[in-house]
Amino acid sequence: MSASRWSGALRIAAAASVAVLILAIGAVAGAAWQQSRHSDSDAPSTVDVGFAQDMSTHHDQAILMSRTVSGLPGVGAEIRVLADRMVLTQSTETATLRGWLQWWGEPLTSDTPMSWMGHTDHGSHGHAASQEHSGPATDQPPMPGLASVDELGRLSTLTGRAAEIYFLQLMIRHHRGGQEMARDAFNDDRASTATQQWALTMIGDQGNEIGQMTLMLKARNAEPLPT
């Protein structure tokens, strides 16, 4: 898949998740971030902006997958409850992150995903993203853990136990990618206190969900996707 196709797919997902919620909490989220600053002269760093853009976009796909599996025939209540909870928690986090961006006057999405990361050799995601407009096409997702368009399409065609297993496999990989991004933000000295706090919370919450989903997979005699 070309990088331009990835960019278009991510923008469609982002547009679908913004809606009225962002407008409702934007000022509140922005004011909360401002209160976390060390001084009035502090401004959002490249890491603050990039993390908010990329993590909210990353969450968009988790929300999409969760909503997809909830609507598939034969999917059990256990998976539906998990998916519905993910929609709620990740929608709230996305609204906060995009509230910050709105407060700062920054775009809700980035043309160069992962370019904020503090080192260049990070699963090649930052490098691949930087070639979006100038380099060759790539099949690699622009952020760690993202499902491809083909994988999303396959999920939408499944039913029952097969849908449950594939959703869990995709979401475990997705959460691991999100943890990778959050760890990088947490460990970056350029990140604000608010960004580091949100990143640390995401690392813990998604770690707990990975453990829960791994147990669900084992109960269905299945294993996570290879990393």
Results as ranks from 00 to 15, higher is better:
92 T>Y: 10
147 A>P: 12
132 E>D: 05
127 H>R: 07
152 L>Y: 08
143 M>R: 10
154 R>E: 15
153 G>Q: 06
126 G>I: 03
121 D>S: 10
151 E>H: 14
138 T>F: 03
140 Q>G: 03
93 E>N: 08
115 S>Y: 11
84 D>V: 04
89 T>A: 03
121 D>G: 04
119 H>A: 12
170 L>F: 11
151 E>L: 13
169 Q>Y: 02
114 M>R: 14
152 L>V: 15
82 L>M: 08
132 E>V: 04
130 S>H: 01
163 A>M: 05
114 M>V: 13
117 M>S: 08
144 P>F: 03
128 A>E: 02
124 S>C: 09
117 M>V: 04
146 L>M: 10
160 G>T: 11
103 W>C: 12
150 D>V: 00
92 T>V: 02
96 T>K: 12
117 M>R: 02
120 T>F: 13
106 E>A: 12
102 Q>Y: 15
92 T>M: 07
146 L>F: 09
92 T>W: 12
80 R>F: 13
94 T>A: 08
115 S>G: 04
141 P>W: 03
98 R>V: 00
89 T>P: 07
163 A>Q: 02
122 H>N: 02
120 T>V: 06
93 E>C: 12
157 T>S: 13
92 T>Q: 14
82 L>E: 03
88 L>C: 13
126 G>C: 11
161 R>L: 06
116 W>N: 12
86 M>E: 01
158 L>V: 15
96 T>L: 09
117 M>N: 04
128 A>N: 06
136 P>W: 00
134 S>D: 12
154 R>T: 15
153 G>S: 13
151 E>A: 14
156 S>D: 11
85 R>Q: 10
169 Q>G: 05
171 M>G: 02
82 L>A: 11
131 Q>A: 00
151 E>D: 15
146 L>R: 11
127 H>P: 10
120 T>M: 09
161 R>T: 01
163 A>I: 13
141 P>M: 07
103 W>V: 07
125 H>N: 04
93 E>R: 02
123 G>L: 09
90 Q>S: 06
134 S>Y: 06
138 T>P: 06
136 P>M: 01
89 T>D: 09
107 P>W: 04
104 W>Y: 08
101 L>Q: 14
167 F>P: 03
126 G>H: 04
163 A>N: 11
168 L>Q: 05
95 A>W: 06
92 T>C: 09
96 T>F: 07
165 I>W: 06
165 I>E: 03
152 L>D: 06
148 S>Y: 08
104 W>R: 03
138 T>M: 01
118 G>I: 06
108 L>P: 02
104 W>H: 10
105 G>Y: 03
92 T>N: 14
107 P>K: 08
136 P>T: 01
129 A>G: 06
163 A>P: 11
163 A>V: 11
110 S>P: 08
142 P>K: 03
170 L>K: 11
168 L>V: 01
102 Q>H: 15
95 A>E: 12
158 L>H: 10
168 L>W: 01
134 S>F: 00
92 T>L: 10
167 F>M: 00
144 P>T: 00
118 G>D: 14
118 G>H: 08
103 W>H: 14
143 M>N: 00
86 M>K: 03
136 P>K: 01
140 Q>L: 01
151 E>R: 10
100 W>T: 05
97 L>S: 14
123 G>A: 05
149 V>K: 14
169 Q>L: 02
139 D>C: 05
146 L>G: 07
165 I>P: 01
83 A>L: 00
83 A>T: 10
114 M>T: 12
